[in-house]
Design a protein around this nucleic acid. Structure first.
Lengths: 342, 342
DNA sequence: CCCCCGAAGTTTTACGTATAACTTCAGCCT
DNA sequence: AGGCTGAAGTTATACGTAAAACTTCGGGGG
């Protein structure tokens, strides 16, 4: 603040290192690039490394990128970082990236809130690949047109676009939820779904509907809401206020909606899980912060990021990316119980 | 997956645009750089822009960075993105950055979990500046040594290091909490503090102690916990189990801890706020997800990021960065009430 | 004895951009 | 007429790196 700007001592270049070690710049590049076996003597190589260390040499990434045509940077497209799930996906992806000297840059995708910019307006030229989470079809189009290697997270397996895909076994997770509730005796369900129209949520709806079909006399009433607590509460309140017999279980697409649903139930003077059971999805920190703690499906968010990055690195190397769904599992806590004896 | 890798049509360069428009590469650069007034005729400029658009030209960022010595990229150092507060800080910073064609890259700082890497091992050479949130002193050292413009968020005003600083009026926020509770009649406080030793938390403790001093006979018992719900609950349980008269209010450094405290209170068979009032800090989504909803202090997280980025841009431009504390305010909800009549 | 080879380098070049320095030429004043 | 000026370009260069192509030289095989 008060201190004046430093005169900025220019960062040492490979040429400076070369001068210090008494060799040519090319030799420095060979040694530091690790491809010197049979080209440079061990003694010289050691001398070069010494000079580099002494000068605190760091290669200029811009120059390297320009030369190589690769940037060692991946773009991660997520709906919103404020959703803990995606923050964790990022964390996993960034960890794997760091191990391979890769960087991860984020693009919170257009869900209406951000400035409507081309995701690649500035980034495109500086990227080696893209990892994109489940998103609306139109936004997907933009990603396609950028002829970059693309890894999709939790997306439709039918879709031929991406070079690789990392999926969660969402269907299985929702089936576990359904079986848990059916086993407890529930027959009248409300599915509090996300209003976002992406594959991962479509799957939840389908899985629930199918799982429930095996037990005759079961009903599922679906209602959608944006992913926040208040919206979830309001949607659930509307359902509970509607005529007819009330549901005994509210299955939510997300822990956030489940938290809202719990509030709605109590606002009507009913109890969770005594009168109505509620289930979440994701197992966010929120799930154990509310009371009762939520019965939910734990998703390995960090692993999704890790696998996504690993797959992208494989694709960039021309190697095949292994395709496997990540298993998920039900975590039973306090928000589910048998329905009240009618 | 099945589709073979495209032959990768090489990205058009400014030279390609020049050829298409029948001018030299220099002219393209002038036109697209916006500094063509008086150097290029309007007709030519328009023709160049047309060719660029037609070819889908995007400048190569690596080349530009190499030439200019600037990368238009800032590093944001935060403890953990999974903390909603920092995710929001990022969102704000990224929004302002995008308006100025800047990128923001993240470095989740070393809090034990991540791989212990030099924050700048790979990034340093590719950065124009750093925005760092309140962090432990030793980690700060590494930031200092990177002779980059540094903007600190919510840090000690005494510290002469950073080129600019964006602070929250934390002291005022905590005073509002204290006055609210004192006004309700509370006299026996527990301060459930963050175990993290950074300025922003030190300030909370000091502010609470000072505010409380104005009312004789008031006590504050301080206990620290890591920032998660379970740790908060356990710390609060320990306090409540200790001998002596129980507190009537638990003031928490954070909504997450407050959620834990609420659980602890209820586990002892007491009620929030009937028996014990609880306050949070930050006003995360969590604050309105739990029941009762938390009385807390709303921090303008996005604004912190916005101001931080704005300040960094100013510093990079050689302009002075305006220094002002961002106001915060108490949000009274359902987790506070007068103490029980003894 | 000559040639070739491999080791250990060096010289050179290209990546794509921004800009300083130069060129060309029409118009205009004196 | 001569020269100056400004507009509208162009040419040339540097940024720092990686790597292909070249050089040098000592030794070993035919």
């Amino acid at each position: 603040m008060s201190s004046a700007q430093q005169p900025a001592p220019p960062r040492p270049t490979s040429r400076d290192v070369a001068r210090a070690a008494g060799v040519s710049q090319a030799t420095v590049s060979l040694v530091l690039g690790g491809k010197w076996r049979g080209r440079v003597s061990a003694a010289t190589a050691e001398r070069v490394r010494g000079s580099a260390r002494e000068l605190g040499y760091r290669p200029n990434l811009a120059a390297r990128s320009l030369r190589l045509g690769r940037t060692r940077t991946a773009l991660l497209v997520v709906p919103a970082l404020t959703n803990e799930f995606f923050a964790r996906v990022y964390t996993g992806a960034a960890a794997v990236a760091a191990e391979h000297d890769f960087g991860v840059v984020l693009y919170p995708s257009p869900d209406g809130t951000g400035p409507a910019r081309d995701p690649f307006a500035s980034a495109r030229a500086a990227l080696d690949g893209v990892i994109a989470s489940s998103m609306a079809a139109d936004a997907l189009g933009a990603l396609r047109s950028a002829d970059l290697p693309l890894v999709m997270l939790d997306s439709d397996p039918q879709d031929p676009g991406p070079a690789a895909r990392v999926n969660l076994e969402i269907t299985d997770g929702m089936r576990q939820v359904a079986e848990h509730l059916l086993g407890l005796g529930h027959r009248r369900f409300v599915h509090l779904a996300s209003a976002v129209d992406t594959w991962t949520f479509a799957v939840r709806a389908r899985a629930l509907a199918e799982a429930v079909r095996s037990v005759p006399g079961t009903t599922v009433h679906r209602v959608a809401a944006p992913l926040d607590v208040r919206a979830g509460r309001e949607a659930a309140e509307a359902v509970l206020a509607s005529p007819g017999p009330p549901p005994t279980a509210i299955v939510c697409d997300d822990d956030i909606l489940a938290a809202g649903a719990c509030k709605a139930v109590r606002r009507r003077g009913l109890r969770v899980p005594g009168d109505i059971s509620v289930t979440g999805f994701d197992d966010l920190a929120l799930a154990t912060a509310v009371e009762p703690e939520l019965t939910t499906v734990r998703l390995p968010a960090e692993q999704v990021g890790e696998r996504g990055m690993t797959a992208l690195l494989a694709v960039l190397d021309g190697r095949p990316a292994e395709q496997a769904g990540l298993p998920v599992h039900l975590v039973v806590r306090g928000s589910t119980a048998p329905p009240p004896a009618s």
